[in-house]
Design a protein around this nucleic acid. Structure first.
Length: 312
DNA sequence: AATACTAGCAACCGCGTTTGT
DNA sequence: AACAAACGCGGTTGCTAGTAT
């Protein structure tokens, strides 16, 4: 027994909306509002449409101040940051971009933005040579091209950010790659568990004992291109997984210029764009473990979670 | 010029959540 | 408290226009 259909499918028109239908719907809502009953609305105005279809048409196209296309760099950044942080919560992301609809953002992400970002990362990562001198088995030993789920995409995007922020991190240390799959699984599981428990996701990162912290010797500044000399706190998960020594730099090899190809490929606008992005990460995640990107929205975007009635 | 392929987008569908009774 | 109806969201589908062969 499935759920009862929301309308009489046999007597409901489907497919693209005609200008006449748009006019009927828009003029009615302009005068009377939606009446908080989308199911009854099409009958009132003589439209052979499902109530859900009317709602979608209104929200995505007919309501005032809707913007289509022409996404700006800043909007791209917001979408990327939020996607990495909270995943495919398109309605929440859309709430941060006035005039944009969740459907529009979802389509934009799926058809353009994702390819733009992941494509660049794949290109740069594919040129890496393992420290062992052995080629990965096949093109895809660590190629994430088969990624299909949200968590994995977020992981990959986050790894790209890590690469930009700190080219000496384990993401750029091929010696660690054979274990990376396990790490990926751990991270994915964590992301998924956070997805299933928003309360965890939104809470402050757990306090870390001193013995849990590790430090790595450098921090790359994507804006200046400089390598700092301060020791930098690094992800305690790596410690627990036995990566402490490696992550602390013991097996670091000389990193060639190729590691910075991703910058070379960027125009100045792209570099500034990523600098802005990384800056946001740096400012907003200083108190969190490095891969806990939920911190990105903790400070400036408290209202993101207004829908959930949460505060920080 | 015809056909195949691809990307972009609008709309639909199913299901979890919220609201009303 | 339990149930049903409606809402809202995210994933998916299908159409169309543009591009490649």
């Amino acid at each position: 027994m499935g759920r009862a259909p929301c309308c009489d499918k046999a007597n409901v028109k489907k497919g693209p909306w005609s200008p006449e239908e748009d006019f009927k719907l828009k003029s009615y809502i302009d005068q009377h509002g939606t009446g908080n009953n989308w199911i009854a609305l099409p009958q009132k105005i003589g439209l052979k449409r499902c109530g859900k279809s009317c709602r979608l048409r209104w929200l995505n196209y007919l309501r005032p101040n809707i913007k289509h296309g022409g996404f700006t760099e800043e909007e791209d950044n917001i979408i990327c940051s939020l996607y990495i942080s909270i995943g495919s919560r398109w309605s929440i992301i859309a709430a941060q971009l006035p005039g944009r609809t969740d459907n529009d953002i979802k389509n934009y992400w799926n058809t353009r933005l994702k390819k733009k970002l992941l494509g660049r990362h794949r290109k740069s990562s594919s040129r890496r040579v393992p420290i062992t001198g052995q080629e990965p088995e096949g093109e895809d030993a660590f190629d994430l091209q088969n990624l299909s789920n949200s968590a994995l995409e977020r992981l990959q995007l986050h790894m790209q950010l890590q690469t930009l922020q700190n080219p000496f991190s384990l993401y750029n240390n091929p010696a660690l790659w054979p274990k990376l799959n396990h790490l990926q699984h751990m991270m994915i599981e964590t992301l998924d568990s956070l997805d299933q428990n928003p309360a965890l996701n939104l809470s402050a990162p757990p306090a870390l004992g001193q013995e849990d912290s590790i430090k790595i010797p450098f921090q790359f500044d994507p804006k200046s291109g400089d390598l700092g000399t301060e020791m930098v706190e690094q992800n305690p998960v790596l410690v627990n997984d036995g990566f402490a020594a490696a992550a602390a730099g013991e097996n670091l090899q000389t990193v060639g210029d190729d590691e910075f190809d991703c910058f070379k490929e960027m125009g100045s606008a792209g570099r500034e764009n990523f600098a802005w992005w990384c800056d946001e990460f740096e400012v907003k995640s200083t108190s969190s473990s490095s891969w806990d990107s939920t911190a990105v929205i903790h400070q400036s975007d408290d209202h993101v979670y207004g829908d959930y009635g949460m505060s920080f």
